[in-house]
């Protein structure tokens, strides 16, 4: 921790340690601490069950291929990952498309009760899944959607947050552009596709990352509404691995392999798109 010392300027906060070095050091320590559980999991995912039960054994075990293969194919994680991926993509595409359209209507049209309708959209923020979980579950049954891709995507493809973000962004687009488009007689869809979308690339990417990660990480709702193992998503799928055992011993190596796999997809998405994500977050705070 920093020690206050009036004899040193703000350039160096800690006694005897240049400020920049202290920044680097504290970042490295924080990052290592944050990453340690994952690194250990990665390490354990290469060990056999016997090696894992030898608690102090922290050497790579050489069973990586076996564990990952078994998790993916014997325990069907590959299928769950595909399910999760399809679900997340549907939610991202659906949510972005629907929200772009809604924001288009709200920003570029004038119609009665506009404020009321916008408020009606925003108010749904008060209704997270747990507030409506029981009837939503019964609704899925009545619609015949239970246990299907529809059930895990449908309720998520509209969102107050995305509408709000696109609205904010559209409002920041210079109105001269709109005038030009209007004079040229450009239709609304053309305007959306040719003008708004290209100008909103970063925002769309940001919303997509948020949505993708959010959809991918869903657990409670798929757990409840998907009853067929074959159709389950990967988050719930890794809990199936917990029953994986060898001579009565839980195969933690395999479970760790599954966990790493379940994390890898959103991690890649995040790393690839972290710039637009940060920009989106920054915009939200204006």
């Amino acid at each position: 921790m920093a020690v206050e010392d009036s004899s040193i300027t703000s350039e160096s906060a800690t006694v005897g340690l240049p400020d920049t070095l202290w920044v680097h050091l504290s970042l490295v320590v924080s990052i290592v601490l944050m990453g340690a559980p994952l690194l250990l999991a990665l390490l354990m995912s290469t060990q056999s069950t016997a090696q894992i039960y030898d608690v102090t054994n922290l050497a790579p075990g050489g069973y990586a291929l076996e564990n990952y293969q078994s998790a993916l194919f014997e325990y069907d994680l590959a299928r769950y990952i595909v399910n999760s991926f399809v679900m997340s993509i549907i939610v991202v595409v659906g949510k972005v498309s629907l929200s772009l359209l809604a924001a288009l209507a709200i920003v570029y049209y004038d119609f009665p009760y506009k404020d009321a309708i916008f408020a009606f959209v925003l108010l749904t923020l008060l209704l997270p899944v747990p507030v409506r979980i029981v009837p939503l579950f019964e609704l899925m049954a009545d619609l015949g959607w239970a246990n299907s891709m529809l059930a895990i995507t449908g309720p998520y493809i509209a969102s107050a947050t995305a509408v709000f973000l696109f609205r904010q962004h559209f409002l920041s687009i210079p109105s001269s552009l709109v005038e030009t488009a209007r004079l040229d007689g450009v239709g609304p869809i053309e305007f959306l596709v040719d003008v708004l979308v290209p100008m909103s690339r970063g925002m769309i990417a940001g919303v997509s990352v948020i949505t993708f990660v959010y959809a991918w990480n869903q657990y409670l709702w798929p757990l409840i509404v998907v009853s067929d193992q074959q159709k389950q998503v990967v988050q719930v799928g890794i809990s199936y691995l917990q029953s994986a055992s060898q001579a009565g011993q839980t195969q933690w190596g395999l479970i760790m392999a599954g966990s790493i796999l379940a994390l890898s997809v959103p991690l890649v998405v995040l790393v690839a798109l972290h710039r637009p994500l940060l920009e989106t977050f920054a915009l939200q705070q204006k």
């Binding site: 359209l101 709200i106 959209v121 979980i133 009837p135 609704l139 309720p155 493809i157 509209a158």
Partner: peptide
């Protein structure tokens, strides 16, 4: 343009909440 969003919100958010 608003209809899809409103439909989803009414069906999957408002209706179950009232239920």
């Amino acid at each position: 343009f608003l209809a899809p969003t409103l439909a989803v919100l009414v069906l999957f958010l408002y209706y179950p909440s009232f239920e």
